[in-house]
Design a protein around this nucleic acid. Structure first.
Lengths: 248, 248
DNA sequence: GCAAAACCTTGACCCAAATCAAAAGCACCC
DNA sequence: GGGTGCTTTTGATTTGGGTCAAGGTTTTGC
């Protein structure tokens, strides 16, 4: 077996009510049954804090439903989001005792948790899980680097278009579709959370969303419900080279 | 053995002429001998490109000496650095065929390379190496998130102070010292590379360096040679909460 | 040792996004 | 039904950093 063949497991237990990504047949009966024994669920209400930076964190977890964010805050209150956790995303670091970031539920949130010690022991016994975790971490690092380009070099308008495209893509992937043409979904973030994601103020976010609406790049029903008439146009506005590399 | 006990190996072979980080005794005789069999060296001149984004990349590597950068470029030429590789840093992704970023030598560079296929096979046989790679990737993700806070929320002055502090810390760690008090080292980057790191223009970098010099936060001999009279003052300018967590 | 090139600094001006301010829309709850 | 307290939108103004331009300094190569 090569690394490329590693099971595309989501690192949630076999019984979790999500199958957002293709899961190979073996995962049902193999490593994930080990996870089964050490799991427990925790739910949080919208706005609740899962952990403060510095808190003891004795579990790792997989998001089952809802949205959570990782944020960093400076002493004077400036806040930057550094992670956005959607269903099937993994949070927590084996080998670290405390949370490095504030983890906040931005919607009602259900997480499938694994006590850290047994999880770490399981990782040592089952290299497939460790390898999958490495793969997921490398994906996250790629996403972080894309995000760095956005923060460092994109205009406010491009930032908003990029964020909408990212959410559209993730939404399509949860529905096992390719992002293409007309797309409909809900923005899972407030204007303030978007601002913290993009390194902008919420006023600028609001203004740029209005501008994209005015220019027909996006349509809005209410504050949250978005229709994208043309995904390629959105990508152009985002400044991304549309290389088709986002197909699921 | 727990995950915390995993060897603090640098993922360079036992024969590489660097020991920048504490390396446990076993690493000399154990997994790294396996690396020994599949390694080869490559050197690059300052300014040379190691790989363009999209190029086939059939090796992973550890930096032995010199500096390399990972950069992303938009179609119109806007450039953002997304990785800075100093000696002992690892580059390349098991399980991916092509480079995702431009990799450029900014000084003369020596890399200790491992052909990807044998390296991947070795990872499957020796979980310690995979675990160490996971640990290093998680560290890199943390660094990327710190970088995101810098890009999204810090002022130009804070960005420069942060970068100088980061380089000072890395330099101290290469010398197996704690960053503290008076420090002397060379900036390994041009003003333009700093600008690409920080999401600024090179003019702003130059202006802010002049300002920090004028205010006594840093001293400069020539363009590159820096003296920091007071590391804590620099950290204050960087907007970091000085929690002492940077000790090696 | 000198010319050319590359790199760096400084100045003047401009603009995108921040800040400050106010009003409008919306959800929740007695 | 109509406060009460959010969140969002929009407007007016300010400002930090970008852009354009010129000149200075260091490095490179013959």
């Amino acid at each position: 077996m090569s690394i490329q063949d590693a099971h595309n497991i989501s690192l949630q237990c076999g019984a979790c009510p999500i199958r957002h990504r293709a899961v190979c047949a073996r995962c049902e009966t193999d490593e994930l049954l080990l996870l089964e024994e050490i799991k427990y669920y925790r739910s949080f209400e919208a706005g609740q804090t899962v952990a403060w930076a510095g808190d003891k964190m004795d579990f790792v977890a997989s998001v089952v439903s809802g949205i959570a964010t990782l944020t960093q805050t400076m002493e004077d209150g400036r806040t930057q989001m550094v992670g956005l956790l959607l269903p099937s995303d993994f949070v927590g670091r084996p080998g670290r005792e405390t949370a490095a970031y504030n983890v906040t539920a931005t919607t009602d949130l259900l997480m499938c948790c694994f006590r850290k010690r047994p999880f770490e022991e399981m990782m040592l016994r089952t290299p497939h899980v460790a390898q999958r975790l490495l793969e997921m971490t490398l994906d996250e690092l790629d996403a972080a680097r894309e995000w760095m380009l956005l923060l460092g070099r994109k205009t406010a308008r491009e930032k908003i278009a990029s964020l909408v495209a990212i959410i559209a893509r993730r939404d399509a992937s949860l529905k096992l579709r390719s992002p293409q043409g007309r797309m409909v979904f809900d923005l899972p973030l407030t204007r303030e959370a978007m601002a913290d994601y993009l390194g902008l103020t919420l006023e600028t976010v609001s203004r740029q969303i209005s501008a994209l609406k005015r220019d027909g790049v996006i349509e809005l029903q209410g504050k949250r419900h978005v229709t994208i008439p043309d995904f390629d146009l959105l990508l152009t506005e985002a400044g991304d080279d549309n290389d088709g590399g986002y197909l699921i």
